[in-house]
Nucleic acid binder design. Structure first.
Lengths: 149, 149
DNA sequence: CAGATTAGTCAAGCGACTTGACCATATAGT
DNA sequence: ACTATATGGTCAAGTCGCTTGACTAATCTG
């Protein structure tokens, strides 16, 4: 693959990814959840699968557990999540989405669906599926976290 | 497109994009440039096309011109760029890459090429080109900037 | 050539994150 | 069983990238 082709691929990939993150965020804000940031969405992804501990969240996001704890504090204060006693471990506390947290998660999914629908209108459903399949093959395993800056 | 397919597409796209950014950064660090961050790379992309003013850089990165000015200060201090008199505008100053800045840019290109080479080994050159073409069709125009957090 | 705009910097503050210290609980070693 | 170590979580303080606000110098507009 030529150098300029590689450059173009990178540019398109990064631009598309940034547009997705920014677009979902904009859609979530437009749906009335204007006090959260994209990073919170990455947390919601984990929390929507049955809750998580602060340490798990920290590992998921790639930050320290102190940072994750502060993030949870903030989301508790805004009513998106709440802390519960952990069933198996008295040290740990399970962080789960509240009703508002679920509403916000669904808003994010709807915003994301809108964006991807736009892609299917450009590429067609079949080719979008191919795109998804190819990306899945080159995507690394592991938690979904925002890129470093 | 089904909802779970859309979710998988998003996850793969974000993971691939993050892996690219993190991977380039790791490659640049491994090549000896350990005092810069991915954001600086986005700046280098613009500066490598004939230099730019602080205001242009600010617009490119999506930050205030004060932040861009500080970033330039930092890069000047580390020897990656230097400020020159602007040929046409006595108010403005042209920021250009130094020798070290060019070396670093080439290191980033090499690191990026390594990563994309890995993709072509998985997908094949032809299919990677299709991927690039499809992404180019859905990627928004505009400057290449890091996604919000 | 006066008024408004633009390029850039200085200064102060904010917010997300870090490191370091600490307590409570759980797990492992002998 | 009992100590030693590891793990989950929080508190406190500090760092760093970025912001808003105020300002100067130079350019454009009418």
């Amino acid at each position: 693959m030529r150098n300029d082709e590689a450059q173009a691929l990178m540019a398109s990939l990064l631009a598309t990814s940034a547009a997705l993150v920014d677009g979902i965020h904009a859609g979530v804000v437009a749906r009335g959840f204007d006090d959260i940031r994209p990073t919170h969405g990455f947390a919601f992804v984990l929390l929507s699968h049955g809750g998580a501990t602060v340490s798990e969240l920290a590992g998921h996001l790639g930050v320290t557990k102190q940072a994750a704890s502060q993030l949870v504090d903030e989301l508790v204060g805004k009513g998106y999540v709440q802390r519960q006693a952990h069933p198996d471990d008295a040290r740990a506390r399970l962080v789960v989405l509240t009703r508002k947290g679920w509403d916000c998660t669904r808003a994010a999914e709807a915003a994301a669906a809108d964006i991807i629908h736009g892609w299917t209108k450009i590429l067609g459903a079949q080719r979008t599926r191919v795109l998804a399949a190819d990306l899945a093959r080159i995507a690394p395993a592991g938690p979904l976290r925002p890129a470093a800056r």
